[in-house]
Simulated assay, not measured.
Amino acid sequence: MKKIAPLFVLMASVLWGSMGIVTRYVADIGFTTRQTAAVRICSAAAVLILFLLITDHRKLKIEKQDLKWFLGTGLGSLFINNLAYAETVQRASLSVAVVLLYTAPFFVMIMSILFFKEKLTLQKVVALLLSFAGCVLVVGLSGANAGSNGAVTLLIGLCAGFGYSLYSIFGKVLVGKYDSLTVTVYTFIFSSIGTLIICQPASMAQRIVENSSKMPLVIIGSVVTLALPYVSYSIGLKYMESSKASIISSFEVVAASLFGVALYHETLDAYNMIGIICVVSALILLQVNFHKNT
């Protein structure tokens, strides 16, 4: 399983990369930014709960002492990440928001060394820098700005990256004890509670009723681009180091760009292509075993 663990993380990054398709569809219905996040997270949570109730309700059982870790993945990671990222997008350009979001692997690497005693190797450092540089080139920062209050925007954007990184830390603790579906479902349950508090649920419910014919597609899209990638990432995280998993997940930026080209006729310039090569090179580098006896 260890050999194919990176493939689960890579699959998760591709599914996350397709998230923009569903997000655009939900936003076009008329939901606010926070409501869009709430609809997607709550839809995914409902489907996951129903699935476990039908297939194996025992996976819904958790121990009280582990609630703090589930609160960490749900509120500390998924909720904070979504909230801070949405706020950053409103304050600055999308490219700035994406680059700040992908400071996450730096946080993961530092925390993995401190808490999991992972080794800091030259291979990881080079892969991390390659993937981050690649993300910057893929999204492009020419003409981008951090808005009128750059310091506050920077701080909020870093919070998005930090929140994103926490799943690789708290999730690593949980996947050693629980099934990946259990970890994912409780992550979404706690995150749903957070999003419902801040999204004006009454007006959101009214809009859902008014657009009930469109909701099945929203639910399916939320499961495919949000629930499934978290399950897949959790499986991969169980069998590999958090720092490596976080770096591999940066392929999400490449996947999102390729989906944009395929579905929305967006174009890639030379810098974008170099960025894609950098990210892919980082993924390949992580799979090379320099200590293998020949």
Results as ranks from 00 to 15, higher is better:
residue 2 K to G: 15
residue 3 K to C: 13
residue 8 F to I: 11
residue 8 F to R: 05
residue 10 L to E: 14
residue 10 L to W: 08
residue 17 G to H: 08
residue 17 G to A: 13
residue 20 G to E: 07
residue 22 V to T: 13
residue 24 R to N: 13
residue 25 Y to D: 15
residue 28 D to F: 05
residue 31 F to A: 04
residue 34 R to P: 04
residue 35 Q to N: 02
residue 35 Q to H: 05
residue 47 V to F: 09
residue 48 L to C: 14
residue 48 L to H: 05
residue 57 H to P: 08
residue 60 L to Y: 05
residue 63 E to Y: 07
residue 65 Q to G: 14
residue 65 Q to S: 15
residue 67 L to I: 03
residue 69 W to L: 03
residue 70 F to Q: 02
residue 70 F to S: 06
residue 71 L to N: 08
residue 72 G to D: 01
residue 74 G to W: 00
residue 74 G to P: 03
residue 75 L to H: 11
residue 75 L to Q: 06
residue 78 L to I: 15
residue 82 N to P: 11
residue 84 A to D: 01
residue 86 A to W: 09
residue 87 E to F: 14
residue 97 A to D: 07
residue 99 V to N: 09
residue 99 V to I: 15
residue 100 L to K: 11
residue 103 T to Q: 09
residue 106 F to H: 03
residue 107 F to Y: 06
residue 107 F to W: 07
residue 111 M to T: 03
residue 112 S to T: 10
residue 113 I to Y: 13
residue 113 I to P: 02
residue 114 L to W: 09
residue 116 F to E: 14
residue 117 K to R: 06
residue 117 K to W: 03
residue 120 L to K: 13
residue 125 V to D: 10
residue 126 V to E: 13
residue 128 L to K: 02
residue 129 L to N: 12
residue 131 S to D: 07
residue 132 F to Q: 00
residue 135 C to L: 08
residue 135 C to Y: 05
residue 136 V to C: 13
residue 138 V to L: 09
residue 139 V to C: 03
residue 141 L to W: 03
residue 143 G to C: 09
residue 145 N to M: 14
residue 145 N to V: 13
residue 147 G to F: 11
residue 149 N to L: 14
residue 152 V to R: 09
residue 155 L to R: 04
residue 156 I to R: 02
residue 162 F to M: 11
residue 163 G to D: 12
residue 165 S to P: 00
residue 171 G to N: 11
residue 171 G to C: 12
residue 174 L to M: 12
residue 174 L to A: 06
residue 177 K to Q: 11
residue 179 D to N: 04
residue 180 S to Q: 11
residue 180 S to A: 15
residue 184 T to G: 09
residue 185 V to N: 07
residue 186 Y to M: 05
residue 188 F to A: 01
residue 189 I to Q: 03
residue 189 I to D: 01
residue 191 S to L: 11
residue 200 Q to C: 03
residue 205 A to E: 06
residue 205 A to P: 01
residue 208 I to A: 10
residue 210 E to D: 14
residue 210 E to V: 10
residue 211 N to R: 04
residue 211 N to W: 04
residue 211 N to T: 07
residue 213 S to K: 07
residue 214 K to V: 00
residue 215 M to D: 05
residue 219 I to H: 00
residue 220 I to D: 08
residue 223 V to F: 05
residue 223 V to D: 03
residue 225 T to V: 10
residue 226 L to G: 02
residue 227 A to P: 00
residue 227 A to L: 02
residue 228 L to Q: 01
residue 230 Y to I: 07
residue 231 V to M: 11
residue 235 I to R: 02
residue 237 L to W: 06
residue 237 L to F: 12
residue 239 Y to V: 10
residue 241 E to P: 00
residue 242 S to P: 00
residue 242 S to R: 00
residue 244 K to C: 04
residue 244 K to R: 12
residue 249 S to M: 11
residue 253 V to A: 07
residue 254 V to T: 01
residue 256 A to T: 02
residue 258 L to E: 06
residue 259 F to E: 10
residue 259 F to G: 05
residue 260 G to K: 00
residue 260 G to I: 01
residue 262 A to G: 04
residue 263 L to G: 09
residue 264 Y to P: 00
residue 266 E to R: 04
residue 268 L to C: 06
residue 268 L to Q: 05
residue 270 A to D: 13
residue 270 A to M: 15
residue 272 N to K: 10
residue 273 M to P: 01
residue 277 I to P: 00
residue 278 C to R: 03
residue 280 V to N: 03
residue 280 V to F: 14
residue 293 N to M: 09
residue 293 N to A: 06
residue 294 T to D: 14
